[in-house]
């Protein structure tokens, strides 16, 4: 699937994906990265760059999980 995904998409594209519920941010005030099509994407001046680095993906997964746990009911 990753072969068919572009390495970057526009801000408008990601905004549409977000509105359609296809893209998800790790947290409400965490706007620098989002999850779309099983990849992390990082915002930059002209759009969103797909994170292809396994270390970065793992790091984002772990930190997003920490944020989710903190936001979950009963979590802190």
């Amino acid at each position: 699937m990753s072969e068919s995904l572009p390495l970057l998409v526009s801000h408008d594209f990601m905004a549409l994906a977000h509105d359609a519920g296809l893209a998800e941010q790790p947290g409400p005030s965490f706007g620098a990265a989002c999850r779309y099509q099983d990849f992390w994407w990082l915002a930059y001046a002209d759009g969103w760059l797909r994170v292809t680095d396994p270390f970065m993906s793992t790091e984002l997964d772990a930190r997003a999980a920490r944020l989710r746990n903190a936001s979950a009911p009963g979590g802190t």
């Binding site: 005030s29 965490f30 944020l67």
Partner: peptide, 12 residues
Amino acid sequence: RMVHEAATLAAL
């Protein structure tokens, strides 16, 4: 959450 986001970006 802001500190968390900043730390994430700094780590990357």
